[in-house]
Design a protein around this nucleic acid. Sequence first.
DNA 1: GCAAGCCGTTACAACTTGTTACGCAAGGCT
DNA 2: AGCCTTGCGTAACAAGTTGTAACGGCTTGC
Lengths: 245, 245
Amino acid sequence: MAIPRILVVDDDVEMRAMMTQFLQQNGSIALPAANEAEVRRHIDGGRVDLVLLDVMLGDENGLEICKHLRREQDVPIIMVSALSADHQRMEGYAVGADDYIAKPFNPELLLARVKAVLSRTRRSASLVHRRNTKTFQFHGWTYDAKTSEVLSPTKVQVALSHRETALLQVLLANPHIPLTREEIAANLDVTGEGQPPSEATGRAIDVLVGRLRNKIETNPKEPKILKTERGVGYVFAADVAVSDT
Amino acid sequence: MAIPRILVVDDDVEMRAMMTQFLQQNGSIALPAANEAEVRRHIDGGRVDLVLLDVMLGDENGLEICKHLRREQDVPIIMVSALSADHQRMEGYAVGADDYIAKPFNPELLLARVKAVLSRTRRSASLVHRRNTKTFQFHGWTYDAKTSEVLSPTKVQVALSHRETALLQVLLANPHIPLTREEIAANLDVTGEGQPPSEATGRAIDVLVGRLRNKIETNPKEPKILKTERGVGYVFAADVAVSDT
DNA sequence: GCAAGCCGTTACAACTTGTTACGCAAGGCT
DNA sequence: AGCCTTGCGTAACAAGTTGTAACGGCTTGC
């Protein structure tokens, strides 16, 4: 990320000065504010990556401001307050704060928590776009997670059904790790997005595995990729190379 | 989001039992683990939305595990520890933890912080996930996006197929807006997660609409909810109330 | 009114997918 | 070694899903 812009909201001038100065020394841009109007101006106007919001702001209330912000904004908010009782903290979380830090605090710790919230925001933002854009390669085969297409070593497309695709995804995510039928079933249903609420019972997984083998094993009688772990379950026994697209 | 799946990592059996039980009572799925191997197994295998990670795990170290996970995973991690000195907390944040909670802790506060981290993750992620936490009401009917369940005005569950559910979702997202067959088909495939790459041609949508009407219209011959827009397509003609879950 | 579309509906066929049953193979036990 | 129990592969089946096609009624414009 670029240099983070942090809005410091506190009506105590000294405290605000201390915090802004400290943040700036540690590589952030710190913007001061003392009331809701100023907060709003900054957020609506420029980019703000995180808000450090004091709870007691003269005749205004940080909790209220947080609640208002949450109604329309996803901006990360860390509440800062001398009110450190559990129920007061929980009130902060209840109105949508990402963290709640009691005063007085260790500035280094504040910085650590700011960084934690910022990196969680960043990681989550990039995740979604990446997740479905991967390509898996194993034993010459290719599985494209975006299109759910499977290509044989000779680059011929092979048609897999819903569940076969889901099974392959589960297996690809766990190469060389033996999975029980229960584990497979549970993850299959997750992939299926709740449509079939049936956590497949009986021998369904066995049959499914057999069908997948028929499609992706050169010799289904002697599986090289999807091996049986007697008494346990199944293993995806090939090395998997994952590449972003 | 669907029900959050939380991995509880602690080598103290009682503590782990307390935490898992509490989380489950509060609407999460809690998965127990006691060492890095088990953690890895769960994370690689199934979906895990958040990890509650104890620092002192017999001869293993939660900080190390956290560091390892962060090398390849974006999964949210909350460290839990009896080590509550500032430098110990900061060590937790330094290895990539999203939060650091000192033992002993108030379970309610733990829950609040878990929720805070999860919702930060969710907010930063995408609308797609958010969409699945809602309940839609129209004409006495209820559609729960989480479970894909449909309840009739008399609260009897009605079974919809994959595509019928997908169709209903598309319509619910566009109340009172006439949609062409092409628009519907395109959105159906998005919902279907790329499995059937067929952008349903011909009269498929008509038939699908007919089938859905048979299930959710009091009198399918005279549709009050899913109306036909002659020469255009179809409209979801009921008011929709959306509520978060 | 009448013809041309447009739409509802039924019938059908292709697929998918879980269940059952049968037979073979792998280990364990004596 | 030989037998026996248990687990696994798979073929056959049944239930359900979903797109296509065809027929007939209804609307619309002339």
